[in-house]
């Protein structure tokens, strides 16, 4: 087998085709809007972390992208075409958070169903994912533990050989060993086939090594989207000794996301605009610091990198 990319991958990010593009996406349930005015672009070949507090709209957005839920407003495009375009048939693999599999089916029957429903099915790949699970293929789904069901659900999603893999909290009920093994297999699949991955999780450490792209949702809106390194570089974590209360005047020209005070020491996460005042110590934040500051703050303007901005806002006029 030839290696898919031998060096040029990642250098032409701006010319990469789009895997997923949401434009003004909204979903209203009876209790209110779960998602509103949600726009971002996910280039093909990226491993994207979808992060946000409970109820931020992650699962709603993923269900819409997986074409299982109709949006109230706005559009989603997959590889430059509407979700229901014939070309997009079978291009998405989706593992839902609640792992909806037939409890009465055996593992073998579940794979058989996957094979029958998907022309591009790769039985060996699905079985490779199950191999580390130490349960027989004759076991009924209903008799499996949560983590074992997760494994079957991932096997079905990857066996389809999709171009876009949508995983809603894929690792949440796996033990650390299985987590490492399955994340490794997932990354290997992405390396081999250039699969785009969109996955949600609450565990930053889990996402930090695997993901190179981020969509942060809060209150049904996109707060941050784009290449993780680029987003980190657009922020600074600054500290200084201050005497007066409130946000110091010398930070006023920068977009301050959050300030925290401990005695005389003030720590602020900001989006710098021009040089910092003297006497401030500045560092690039970690992914965890960036996420936490944005989640704690309120009324922060959204930041989308160039790559993450939808190409055309007015297509369906």
């Amino acid at each position: 087998m030839t290696e898919l990319y031998s060096g040029d991958f990642g250098e032409h990010a701006e010319t990469r085709p789009t895997a997923l593009e949401a434009d003004g996406l909204g979903k209203r349930y009876r209790r209110g809007w779960a998602l509103r005015n949600c726009s971002f672009r996910l280039p093909a070949g990226r491993i994207c972390a979808m992060v946000g507090p409970n109820g931020a709209g992650k699962s709603t957005l993923m269900s819409i992208a997986a074409h299982l839920l109709a949006p109230t407003e706005g559009t989603v495009e997959l590889f430059g075409r509407p979700l229901d375009a014939p070309e997009n048939q079978g291009r998405i693999g989706y593992a839902a958070q609640d792992k909806p599999l037939y409890g009465g089916f055996t593992v073998a029957e579940t794979l058989r169903l996957g094979r029958d429903l998907n022309p591009s099915w790769d039985q060996a790949k699905a079985e490779a994912l199950l191999a580390g699970g130490r349960f027989p293929h004759s076991a009924r789904i209903g008799s499996l533990s949560g983590g074992q069901r997760t494994r079957v659900s991932l096997a079905v999603a990857l066996g389809k050989q999709p171009d876009l893999l949508i995983l809603d909290e894929p690792m949440s009920d796996l033990d650390p060993l299985a987590r490492h093994e399955l994340m490794g297999l997932l990354m290997a699949e992405a390396a081999e086939r250039g699969t785009t991955v969109l996955m949600s999780s609450h565990v930053v450490a889990e996402l930090e090594d695997a993901c190179d792209y981020l969509v942060l949702l809060a209150d049904g809106k996109v707060l941050l989207a784009g290449d993780i390194e680029e987003l980190l570089d657009a922020h600074l974590l600054v500290t200084a000794a201050v005497t007066e209360d409130g946000t110091p005047a010398e930070l006023a020209s920068h977009q301050v996301i959050e300030t925290r005070r401990n005695g005389r020491q003030l720590t602020a996460l900001l989006r710098p605009d021009g040089p910092l005042p003297g006497g401030w110590h500045a560092e690039t934040p970690t992914l965890g610091e960036l996420l936490l500051a944005h989640l704690r703050a309120s009324g922060v303007p959204a930041l989308l990198t160039d790559e993450a901005r939808p190409a055309a806002a007015a297509v369906a006029a």
Binding site: F9, G10, G184, L185, M187, A190, C211, D212
Partner: peptide, 24 residues
């Protein structure tokens, strides 16, 4: 290969390629 490295380490494939480009 990038595939071998990421399968063993569970890191992002682009990270491996970035390292290899630096070595190159």
């Amino acid at each position: 290969t990038a595939k071998q490295v990421v399968e063993a380490t569970a890191i992002n494939p682009n990270t491996v390629l970035k390292a290899y480009r630096e070595l190159e």
